[in-house]
């Protein structure tokens, strides 16, 4: 069985983000990029589904500029079989991105298409379920692990402190969150093999964006805090400040 994983290349989560002189973009100088962390969990679960079944393939898709090749190679090194780069420039309008992906994958026979539950840059948590609606697939979001049973997937979700077990009929879209299965580290052998795996580039079918960036800003600096004191003897003063000054308790 074929599983497709849609992934995104994002700045490393340890990166400091600065707004550039245009005021509507971030300064990309010196920024290190990675596969969005939740997308790595999605790749891991796709590889496990393939290994569990003992057959099938894992195909990666991304929408981005030529530099997104690097993210696809990383997924191939983890063990995915092929990769497709839809060349274009995605923006904040997740529906336009979902339409671009749907234009390409609408006819796909893959029973499962996985997305990370959120991208570590825009954090909009929307492209997966939008894509599902556009392609007529059922969708479960925030899945930490799943098993396949015939024409259904049994998914474990984390919701507001509790958990849910959800059954979904295939073909389906699942958006994946951090779960019990950490993404594997690519081996040297995997990295070498990835260089020979198919990575196809084609122009993305673009859809007009209806969400325009008016401005970006960096967060206001928090006013300098103060050290109330050392050790447990500082507690009464802290409690007084929280009560009287911050009115927080």
């Amino acid at each position: 069985m074929r599983t497709i994983v849609c992934l995104k290349r994002v700045p490393d989560t340890e990166t400091r983000i600065r707004v550039d002189a245009s005021g509507v973009r971030i300064d990309t100088a010196g920024v290190k990029y990675v596969v969005s962390p939740y997308d790595e969990y999605a790749i891991e679960l796709a590889l496990r589904a393939k290994e569990g079944a003992g057959l099938g393939e894992v195909d990666l898709v991304t929408f981005g500029d030529a530099s997104a090749q690097e993210a696809l190679r990383k997924g191939l090194a983890m063990g995915a079989d092929s990769a497709l780069l839809l060349v274009g420039e995605p923006d904040m309008d997740g529906l336009a991105t979902a339409k671009t992906l749907a234009s390409e994958l609408k006819e796909s026979d893959a029973p499962l298409i996985l997305f990370g539950a959120k991208a570590a840059d825009d954090d909009q948590q929307q492209v997966g379920p939008m894509f599902a609606v556009l392609t007529g697939r059922a969708c479960v979001t925030g899945v930490s692990t799943f098993t396949l049973e015939g024409d259904k997937a049994i998914c474990h979700r984390e919701v507001e402190g509790g958990t849910e077990v959800v059954e979904v009929g295939l073909p389906a879209v699942l958006t994946i969150t951090k779960g019990p299965h950490d993404p594997r580290i690519a081996s040297l052998k995997g990295i070498m093999a990835a260089k020979k795996k198919p990575l196809v580039e084609k122009a993305a079918q673009l859809h007009p964006s209806r969400m325009r960036v008016h401005a970006l800003r960096e967060p206001a600096a928090r006013p300098a805090g103060r050290i109330v004191g050392q050790g447990p003897d500082a507690v009464p003063e802290l409690v007084r400040l929280l009560r009287e000054e911050a009115k927080a308790i």
Binding site: Q126, G128, P129, V159, E160, M211
Partner: peptide
């Protein structure tokens, strides 16, 4: 933008064909 809202809103956006601003 609760767990329910995060799951529901993108579906509404796609069905209504409008962009969605989350959070």
């Amino acid at each position: 933008a609760t767990a329910l809202g995060r799951d529901l809103a993108p579906r509404l956006a796609a069905l209504l064909d409008v962009p969605l601003a989350t959070d």
